[in-house]
């Protein structure tokens, strides 16, 4: 089942470079082909995004009714001589496997890959814009942008001169390893570079999905509550770095930066912090030094 519209297709997302449209983009996977054989006359039709809910519901209900009558009998019949399979499989195994492949690919090419996660509006894209502008003479940057909709972030990154692809997840709330695998191939990332993967703005869902990144960076801004780390602990627990952005606004907001750090360290005592203002440039040098040091 597709996460976007609930139809029978899976993995509905698109990967585009700025300027590409959905129609001319070969990587857009959202073309549906349904065979409706339940009404007797089989017909196949291709359509994209024009799926109506009524259709969907009819289809599901229909199948459900069919299955119900059908299954019930078999179920009773076979129950006594069924077999048990010991599976013991991690539910996220498929994602984790692709993530490890990504990790191997990045390591072989000496690509330092960073998965940036945060709530919407913390300044992820602005941080990338400024970092790329300030360091692009020393470091070669590539960017994978993740959002539910629009090419806006990719267009902003493209203006900095860094190669970028935009993943639109549709209704999906996080990037997964398969999306990054496809996007990295499309981006044709060169050896010895830094790859920023800007995840969908969401502090919950992306925490469970390893993308194969070298480091995970969680960003919060001082306009959010200082208790963000304990409200959304899983994300802080799975991150390596915490960037606290918009520190130029500290005099105007009730954000206790030491308290925020203390909360975050309760959850993850290995977390390393950078306090920055992307707007004024304050604190950015520490972040740049870290980036250059780890890039090798």
């Amino acid at each position: 089942m597709c996460e976007t519209c609930g139809c029978g297709e899976s993995n509905s997302f698109s990967i585009r470079k700025p300027g590409e449209t959905i129609e001319n983009n070969p990587d857009h996977t959202h073309t549906h082909s349904h065979s409706h054989s339940h009404d007797g006359s089989e017909h196949t039709h291709n359509h994209s995004h024009s799926h109506t809910h009524d259709n969907n519901h009819e289809r599901h209900h229909h199948l459900e009714d069919n299955d119900h009558a059908h299954h019930h009998h078999d179920y009773q019949h076979n129950h006594s001589h069924g077999t048990e399979i010991k599976v013991e499989t991690d539910i996220l195994q498929k994602n984790n496997l692709i993530a490890e492949r990504n990790r191997g690919f990045f390591e072989a090419k000496n690509i330092f890959s960073l998965n940036l996660v945060s709530s919407p509006g913390s300044g992820k894209t602005s941080l990338l814009e400024k970092t790329i502008k300030d360091l692009k003479s020393d470091v070669s940057f590539y960017v994978i942008e993740g959002d539910q909709q629009t090419m806006n972030d990719a267009n902003r990154i493209e203006a900095t001169g860094a190669p970028v692809v935009q993943i639109n997840t549709g209704n999906g709330c996080h990037l997964d390893a398969e999306m990054v695998n496809k996007a990295a191939k499309k981006l044709d990332v060169e050896n010895n570079s830094v790859l920023f993967i800007e995840n969908v703005g969401n502090l919950i869902c992306p925490s469970l999905f390893d993308l194969g990144e070298s480091k995970r960076i969680v960003i919060i801004s001082v306009t959010e509550g200082e208790d963000k780390p304990i409200k959304y602990p899983t994300m802080f627990q799975s991150s390596d770095i915490c960037i606290i952005n918009k520190i130029d606004l500290l005099p105007y907001v009730d954000f206790n930066i030491e308290k925020a750090k203390e909360y975050a360290l309760r959850i993850n005592h290995n977390l390393q912090f950078f306090e920055v203002s992307v707007k004024t440039g304050e604190g950015m040098n520490d972040w740049y030094n870290w980036l250059k040091k780890h890039k090798c």
């Binding site: 078999d74 048990e84 399979i85």
Partner: peptide
């Protein structure tokens, strides 16, 4: 002490299936 390590509770596992 806040420095603790989770030793269980992160499981997301398909344990077994009974099939026919």
């Amino acid at each position: 002490e806040f420095k603790t390590e989770i030793i269980s509770g992160k499981e997301l596992i398909v344990k077994s299936l009974k099939v026919e």
